[in-house]
Simulated assay, not measured.
Amino acid sequence: MRFSSFGDVAAVLHIEELPTPVPAPDEVLVEVHAASINPSDVKNVQGKMKQTTLPRTPGRDLTGIIVAGNGDMIGEQIWAAGGDIGFTRDGSHAEYILIPGRGVRPKPKSLSMVEAASVGINYITAFFGLIEKAKLREGETVLVTGANGGVGSSVVKIAKSKGARVIAVDRQVLEPEKARRLQIDLSLSSQSNDIVNRVKQFTQELALS
């Protein structure tokens, strides 16, 4: 997929045949097996990402197999996401993509190509904020706004995997089955006028228990 101008996705995106790219010494050539579509990909085509240069192939998350470049990595199944991919470097919505060798990692064997490609930006954003910046520890309580969205649900899953308690806030209270499956401790609606009191009550009860 390719776009040479910004605008409505259906109007400006088109299929274009290009030569298979040749990797520079610090790059690898990846045969793309799966690529996800993020909201930022759509915004990118619409012209809402000011750093993007044209013409450009969109797409930020992918899985694939290295077919050229670093000899030690050829044939390896990898995943990659983010950075300048799709903005100033052609993205993952193509058959092949060039990526800096330092920007790829082996794909977890427990995930299929499609599953791994869907992890990408959502989990990277969630992990960076929750673990790298907030330094979440076991037993702490996290309030997640937009808990039903891509990044929000990723935050919920990472927080629970670290042994934290989760208060989930979204426009609607999460369905009971989903809340149980995600092990959410308290689900609230952002439309409620009683969020602050409910959160205070929940955390005070934890302090007394």
Rank of each mutant, 00 (worst) to 15 (best):
R56V: 09
F128S: 13
W79T: 08
H14R: 15
R198D: 12
R171C: 01
P108W: 00
G83R: 10
V196D: 11
K107T: 11
S92T: 15
E17Q: 15
L98A: 06
R171P: 01
S36A: 15
L188H: 03
P100Q: 08
W79H: 14
P100D: 10
E95F: 02
V30Q: 11
L143S: 12
P55I: 01
V28T: 04
G120K: 09
T145I: 07
V114M: 08
S161P: 12
N193Y: 08
T145P: 07
E17W: 07
Q77R: 14
R198H: 11
A168T: 09
L29P: 14
P55Q: 03
L174Y: 03
K162V: 03
S36G: 15
V28A: 03
I85Y: 08
E205W: 08
K107R: 15
N148E: 04
G103Y: 11
N38D: 04
E16W: 01
A10C: 10
I37N: 10
G149M: 06
P100E: 07
V104C: 12
Q77P: 15
K50W: 05
V166Q: 05
D90W: 11
Q183F: 03
H93Y: 04
T20D: 02
I124Q: 10
E76Y: 00
L130A: 13
R198V: 00
V32E: 03
S161R: 14
A11G: 09
L62S: 11
T63A: 01
K178R: 12
Y96T: 04
S190N: 06
A134H: 06
G59L: 03
E177S: 11
E138N: 13
V155C: 11
K200D: 02
S110F: 05
G86A: 05
V156P: 13
L188I: 04
F6W: 08
L174F: 02
F202C: 12
G129S: 09
R60P: 12
